[in-house]
Design a protein around this nucleic acid. Sequence first.
DNA 1: AGCCGTTATTCATTTAAAGGAATAACGAAG
DNA 2: CTTCGTTATTCCTTTAAATGAATAACGGCT
Lengths: 115, 115
Amino acid sequence: MKKDYNISLSLRINIGNDTVLASGKVELLIKIKEMGSLRKAAEEMKMSYRKAWFSIHKINNLASETVVVLKRGGKNGGVATITDYGNSIISQYISLRKDVDIFISKNSSKYDFNK
Amino acid sequence: MKKDYNISLSLRINIGNDTVLASGKVELLIKIKEMGSLRKAAEEMKMSYRKAWFSIHKINNLASETVVVLKRGGKNGGVATITDYGNSIISQYISLRKDVDIFISKNSSKYDFNK
DNA sequence: AGCCGTTATTCATTTAAAGGAATAACGAAG
DNA sequence: CTTCGTTATTCCTTTAAATGAATAACGGCT
């Protein structure tokens, strides 16, 4: 019986054994950039604020430089900002991801895991 | 501060949302092939027999054809055998994995996640 | 029939991850 | 000095995953 298999490549940027960036985190960062708010970004992704906060905390601690600056209080209650470094690694990740996708589409046709 | 980041691509062969093959399962299958025994393969991988058994059960159920034939009783107490189809997808996975590794080494140098 | 080493399966326990609720802290603006 | 919406953090509960122990089932061999 033929089955509809598919090949997936997941891309991770690690430091040691810890993941700084993978698809989920990148998505979260982009949402933060769009909304300027961690809470709203989390909401948009149907993720608890708590989880999102831990996620950002981890990224900031691991990476070479700060990726997201969080400020509380003030005009809109607080604000979340992506740093220049943050924007840099986001676009690098996206660019590399595109290359990966091209690689998959070029190579996967050579294989047939049904036989 | 410069950190020693690394880029990892994990390769998965899925059917729908379920993973038939990924690096850990392939390693287990190879050990089974070497030893002819699920128990010994699990032991070698420092994995509980229980977990290994579930793993194989899942692979066999998901894949197009049987990948591992398990028999109990008999000369050596029992035996685990990789089918022709099993050997085929193992070598396909390894071959594709090699291509992926080459791709990584060619592309990762273009990126610097420290800046 | 009994032995042996493996496969097959259940049950209870432990450990880890995820989630939710609640509340404090903050600072601009009115 | 109060309000407002967000960030920050704790505590408890729930859910899921991993582990371990124990035991049955099997079949060639002596």
